[in-house]
């Protein structure tokens, strides 16, 4: 019996080394350790052994089985790895082929910039107001301290619908409309994005363009607050390393008025072609709300004050994306739009 077992062990071990596929290994298991396997058969014959021999042979048989099981699982593992390796070697793909993704569309660059501007001001506590694009001359001009036949009207050549109705030349009429709606409540803290229209058409002017107006009215609003607000805007819009400067200017509905320049991002202020060697780029107009505008809007200029600003979205978009011709923005060439 003992010899039989030793023989079996030797034979099985030899046979196992020759097994190289999962299939053969499975046959091996059945042959030796299956229900009708050789080792199982031997163990079944243990009943005929004497009671002294039985535990010894039993132990030996168990040892042999365990050792075979261990060897088998080791070989099994190796064979499995080999088989997977072989399979994988046939499954190579060209990893340089392009990825497959759904087509994504684009937002128009003006909308991207408009959204960014809105986000910045909403973050600073502004709400977004809107107003009609076909506007009364009264709101577009008169309520903003620009009477009929005033030379300041030359700054904005208008499209008229009738004598008293025109395409708004600026988003500023919404200042007057908002004051009328809000008075006497405080504070007013709004921005007004929208389309505006002027009779100009060349590389730097489009008859239709976009503006964002800002208006803050409260007790004790100061010119210094305007500076701080615009600095914060410019740095969020163009980068925290940028600076601004204010130059005295004239708008009929603000006083003091200021043109606002941002330091040139190309040269950092040293002067280059982009900034025409000044180190600065003009981005918007602004000022303290003129007392007459406050009065017309129903507020007492001795008690409240405010600031206002207005920026051309096209101008900012052109600066942000380094565009040289405003007309690109309205041609809607897909090759242009695709870049944003």
């Amino acid at each position: 019996m003992r010899e039989k077992l030793e023989m079996l062990k030797k034979r099985a071990q030899e046979e196992l080394t020759g097994c190289s596929s999962l299939e053969v290994l499975n046959d091996f298991r059945v042959k030796y350790m299956g229900k009708k396997g050789e080792l199982t058969q031997i163990l079944r014959g243990m009943g005929q052994l004497s009671s002294e021999e039985r535990p010894i042979i039993g132990q030996l048989a168990n040892e042999i089985r365990d050792s075979l099981e261990a060897s088998l699982s080791k070989v099994l593992q190796n064979v499995k790895i080999k088989e997977i390796e072989q399979r994988l070697s046939h499954e190579s793909i060209d990893v340089t082929m392009p990825g497959v993704a759904p087509n994504l569309g684009r937002r128009h660059p003006l909308e991207l910039v408009l959204n960014r501007i809105e986000e910045i001001f909403v973050g600073m506590g502004y709400t977004i107001e809107e107003g009609p694009e076909i506007e009364l001359d009264y709101y577009n001009f008169e309520a903003l301290n620009i009477p009929k036949d005033h030379p300041a009207r030359d700054m904005q050549d208008s499209f008229y619908i009738t004598k008293d109705v025109l395409l708004r030349t600026q988003t500023s009429p919404v200042q007057a409309r908002t004051m009328e709606k809000m008075r006497p409540n405080l504070p007013i803290k709004i921005i007004v994005p929208g389309k505006v229209y002027r009779r100009d058409d060349d590389a730097t002017h489009s008859p239709m363009f976009h503006q964002v107006e800002g208006l803050v009215i409260d007790e004790n609003i100061r010119f210094s607050d305007l500076k701080g607000t615009l600095l914060s805007f410019a740095q969020q819009m163009f980068g925290s390393e940028r600076n601004i400067r204010l130059r005295p200017s004239f708008f009929p509905f603000t006083e003091p008025s200021a043109e606002v320049d941002v330091s040139c991002g190309v040269c950092g202020g040293a002067g280059c072609r982009t900034c025409k060697h000044t180190g600065w780029l003009e981005i918007l107009g602004s000022g303290i709300v003129h007392p007459r505008v406050l009065e017309m809007g129903g507020y007492d200029p001795e008690k409240v004050s405010g600031f206002a600003f207005g920026m051309g979205v096209e101008r900012i978009t052109m600066l942000k994306y380094d565009l040289d011709d405003m007309r690109l923005l309205f041609e809607n060439d897909i090759r242009f739009l695709h870049q944003f």
């Binding site: 994504l104 569309g105 128009h108 003006l110 694009e133 389309k195 229209y197 008859p207 809607n332």
Partner: peptide, 9 residues
């Protein structure tokens, strides 16, 4: 997948 355009009013 659509591209936004802006045309004159």
């Amino acid at each position: 997948g659509l591209y936004q355009v802006i045309t004159f009013s």
